[in-house]
């Protein structure tokens, strides 16, 4: 094998290894408002790539006006820098637009365990979901009513379960 080829292979392996390390580090970053959920569970990491010495992370925001975005950006950047990278940019992109369908299966399980009803599937963008009968995260009943379209954070609505007589919150489908 010629030296040039061998160097190219080493550099490619190096490239892949760096990306894996950075991706793993980012997977440890959690949403400050829903601390059980990682940014990967949320489906907001749309791309991680290396351009020369430069690491670029594309993040597709859940809600455009979400006040947690700046914290998430800083946390992702810090996590990537802690792997030894020196040049990291975190960008917000709207392509593809985030919809709640991007929350992973693992993320949905974690939401349910946290007591937050996960969003319905495929009711993103502008279709209107049926918000009555949202399954209760505590007892699973669909005998529930929508109490308020808006809740304690931009992404939540408030519901009431007529079976177990408890209020609960729901991650809105967008």
């Amino acid at each position: 094998m010629r030296d040039g080829e061998s160097m190219a292979i080493t550099s490619r392996l190096d490239h892949e290894a760096r990306l894996t390390v950075v991706r793993e580090a980012i997977a440890g970053v959690t949403d400050p408002e829903i601390p059980v959920l990682s940014v990967v569970d949320m489906g907001i990491i749309s791309d991680v790539r290396i351009e020369g010495d430069h690491i670029i992370v594309d993040v597709t925001p859940t809600f455009v006006g979400c006040p947690a975005l700046d914290v998430i950006r800083q946390d992702i950047r810090r996590a990537a820098l802690e792997t030894g990278e020196t040049d990291v940019t975190v960008r917000f992109v709207y392509d593809p637009p985030w919809t709640s369908d991007r929350i992973t299966e693992e993320g949905r399980r974690k939401l349910l365990k946290f007591g937050l009803a996960p969003p319905g599937q495929r009711c993103g963008e502008h279709q209107t979901p049926d918000l009555n009968q949202t399954p209760c995260p505590y007892c699973g009943s669909t005998e529930t009513d929508l109490e308020s379209l808006f809740g304690p954070t931009l992404c939540r609505s408030i519901h009431y379960c007529r079976t177990c007589l408890q209020s609960f919150e729901h991650f809105k489908a967008v």
């Binding site: 502008h126 931009l154 609505s157």
Partner: peptide, 9 residues
């Protein structure tokens, strides 16, 4: 496209 999903609420 992104804003429309929020606007529906």
């Amino acid at each position: 496209r992104k804003l429309r999903g929020e606007k529906k609420y």
